[in-house]
Design a protein around this nucleic acid. Sequence first.
RNA 1: GCGCCUGUAGCUCAGUUGGAUAGAGCAACUGCCUUCUAAGCAGUAGGCCGUAGGUUCGAAUCCUACCAGGCGCGCCA
Length: 585
Amino acid sequence: MIGKLTTMFSQAFESCGLDPRFSRVIISDRPDLGQFQCNGALAAARAEKKNPKAIAQAVIEALQDRQIFSDISIAGAGFINLTLTDAFLASHMEEMADDDRLGCAKTSQPRNVIIDFGGPNVAKPMHVGHLRSTIIGDCLQRLLRFTGDNVTSDIHLGDWGLQMGMLICELRRRQPELPYFDASYAGPYPDKTPVSIDDLEEMYPVASARCKGDEREMEAARTATAELQQGRPGYRALWDHFVNVSVNALKDDFGKLGVSFDLWRGESYYNDRLPGMIGQLKERGHARVSDGAVVIPVSSPSDKKEVPPLILEKSEGGYLYGTTDLATIEERTGELHADLVLYVVDKRQHLHFEQVFRAARIVSFARKAGLEHIAFGTMNGPDGKPFKTRAGGVMKLKDLISMVTENALVRMRENRIAEDFDEAERQGIARQVGIATLKFADLGNHRTSDYVFDLANFSRFEGRTGPYLLYTAVRIKSILRKAKDEGLNPGTILTPTVPVERELMLNLSWLPEKITNACAERSPNYLCDFVYTLAQVFSRFYQQCHILSEKDPAVQSSWLALSQLCLSELELVLSLLGMNVPERM
RNA sequence: GCGCCUGUAGCUCAGUUGGAUAGAGCAACUGCCUUCUAAGCAGUAGGCCGUAGGUUCGAAUCCUACCAGGCGCGCCA
């Protein structure tokens, strides 16, 4: 709808000899004065040094199809307020309801987009810190796919860094007799893993602390990492076990969140191309040796701050994650033909991406592709510091999910919801409610702002929450089901009979632009805002217009159609946010 | 030290490219379930948008300075 109106205004601006970029129509923030507004006359007046009211007047007169408006007026300094006729609004609803994409066009120029998110590490359990990257990234892949881009998601597993060396050393300390550590052993190595996921999760913090506290241990870990990266067979065999065990556990976690990836590549995937890449970059004069390390200088004279070079190879021979990141870009823009690569990563890593992106451009790996760091804020505890559990550790994602699911079950029992459903269905509903609580609490915040991780936020069922949205959608499903049982079906959408119905129609008409906007800004919270407002308006409509007992059959079938459209929008947006609506609850 | 980010109701946060009277939710208070699920709806109250200047017809939004907090700054990821 906004698109339609903006197009009309663009033409009007142009025919008045004005720049059409001023013509944007927006949702009115003075609903008492109009449903939509165009403030472009004010901006154009400044550019043209003319009277804004006169420009507004001229634009209005140049407008085609004015019969769709019941009111066009100029107010204040030159605001143009617009109100649609009820007839046009209703016919627009019909149009949306008839379209299986609800009026949301697919892009005519699909891009190859790669989204890199999740970012879990081998041997480290997924914790609440991974939540944001995962659900923001997943939302973006759903969104861009819906708008027509060709999206590939890649988990980019952290399977190749120093933590691997630490783990190798830690296991060697504990079980030195294993064949993996014997350099003279010729194989074959055992098929059975020497460690479980629980072992790994327990070992990593111990190993990490030991290395931090002891320079010799750290040195040993670095050496082991370098040997692994150079292909020492025993270490590679051991590493395979670490990775397999971790990936199985990760698939389980991501499965619970309803998140999937097209590619499960890790840093190790690029290992073989690193030496060649570095050699080539040295030859081409982009990389040079500095303090024993191989680096690409990326600073530029216009920098306000000092930008350190990107280190490709450490002085003792190991690679860093920037090295694989650079190789990854070469592959993504080359073999994978990416037009756009999104990195959904904590904003504290901003400088790192600045370095990597600059390096990629300097060495021409970026080609014409856009490289974007989709930064998000840090998750803090109530004390403003990174979140810790009461015991002082980080909370595992697995435990958080069980907690929200359990909370949902408790609430269902209290409210006597789903009492007569079978156990499996009740569990299913609790899971969906739990996940919706979690995702909405997170996605509802603006991406870049830090936020306080408060367990209460993830256990709330009233107000602006995921469960409220599911509840609203489920109530609509229930009405439609009952209507169907009585032989009542959605029909033609008629002009509104009460103000709240008109308001519902207006909100429904905003969907396509809200989606476009969320995409353009890579901001899931715009979708959250929209879907919450829509649910609120529907709830008011639901309160005021009793559908099943409506006497006038034409009005009743119109209301059913409107409810159906509302449900379709809710389900669409919730699915983009990664939430499923139960059939009943 | 340099750089980046944040500061909006008691609390948690929106505010979509400078617009008219700054919005939600939670918490508080008042009403509404013998009609579609009360995880709901209606209403009351709550603000010097960190502070001070500046640009503009117009600023929470842009610029400058200051205050407060967070984060980052060459061989971790």
